[in-house]
Amino acid sequence: MEEVVRPGGLSVDGRLATADDATLVAACAERVPGAFQALLSRYRRPAVTLAYQMLGNREDAEDVAQEAFVRVFQAIPRFRGQASFSTWLYRIVTNLCLGSRRRRRATVGLDAVREPRASDSPSRQVTEALLTRQVLAAMAPELRAILLLRDQEGLSYSEIAEALRLPLGTVRSRLSKARTAFRKIWSKLSETGEEQS
């Protein structure tokens, strides 16, 4: 049987690796060997990335993502598919980030960011990454969450409404507020940085 090994993960059966989410969820509910690994392999990175951008710390982010996956896997037999699997997972990750004792201001860490490649322009890349992290850390957690779900993870408005349990109108207005806040803080920090240099 063909096996696919992805970086940072276990080998996954080739057919499971290409199955859609609904099929994998059903397979998990029936405890098909390899189904959990396939889902984990698919959503490991988005979950950790979302948590990292929310919390600004790799260790906390992986802890939250781990807890989210454990909750999801335990609840999978009861999952009826009202929302998509990804929306369900994002909701749990976001709620854990917002609700846990980690609900402090996000730190500005780049511990999980890889070293720049030789072809990159290191200074510009690191500066922009650091500035982005600083802007996110300065935003209110609720605004940060909705911004990340839309602009990083690419969820639709209705998926965000489902994930955050918000009316569609609130999603629209809060996202507008979040983008404006990001833009203003970015401008402010950029100006401060230019003055210092």
Binding site: R44, V48, A65, T132, D151
Partner: peptide, 22 residues
């Protein structure tokens, strides 16, 4: 904004033993 966020998120790496821990 989306491009800036994705530029950072694309550089985030997950621990090699993450799957096993989960």
């Amino acid at each position: 904004i989306a491009g800036r966020l994705r530029a950072v998120s694309s550089q985030i790496e997950v621990s090699h033993d993450f799957d096993r821990r989960v």
